[in-house]
Amino acid sequence: MEVAVDIKDLTVAYGDKPVLWDVDLQVPRGVLMAIVGPNGAGKTTLLKAMLGLVRPAAGSVRVFGRPYHQQRHLIAYVPQRSSVDWDFPTTVLDVVLMGRYGHLGWFRRPGRAERDAALAALAQVQMADFAHRQIGQLSGGQQQRVFLARALAQAAEIYVMDEPFQGVDAVTERAIINVLRDLRAAGKTVVVVHHDLQTVTEYFDHVALINVRRIAAGPVAEVFTEANLRATYGGRLALLHTPTDTAPAARPTPAPGD
């Protein structure tokens, strides 16, 4: 099993409060992994550490065996929608083109090839018709798909996403999960901070349970257990239906989680 991302002893602190503490996590190549945990438990920080956006107090992140800053071109990032100002004067196509900037380097401008790649990425998320729309005119789900298309345009090996399903409509949710499955089928590795415990078993094959520390990680069937969930969420969890009893194809009954 090749390891796509190898995180060792990762500790990130803001001031004297640890947000992530001594986290070890191996993301095997080719999986669709969910990162779940309560709010403020360090999930976004874990993603950002993977991308070199925060400096850890200790520990390391290696991508395919090398330090991440040597492998940036292999990782694509889909941030939370709230991280940008959607009133910015730019079109959908422009945003997706930005995904190609890593390939262009310093002085080259996007040309025909880049445009085609961007349009292809938009087609993958069914947003090709919106190419010349200003981004503020999109719905939340459409904005999310644009961010996803931007990541697809990067043609990376590893895709790292922060709550892509948060607050999107059903059409978008379907579109996104289809893209993720296509990526996995193509041998890519996908890591997703996921907010909805209900859909973990349906969408993902691996899961990491994080609450400042790594509680458990591995294949969903083995790791996504009641005991582990209780350990992750403390007492703030009411399970009406044990997740591991669910047949993979069926949708679990509502199990409120944090």
Binding site: D9, T11, A13, G15, D16, P18, D22, A57, A58
Partner: peptide
Amino acid sequence: QRRQQQINRERFALQM
């Protein structure tokens, strides 16, 4: 703040 950061760094390291 600097002093606190130094203390934290050392404490984490000792724990590690």
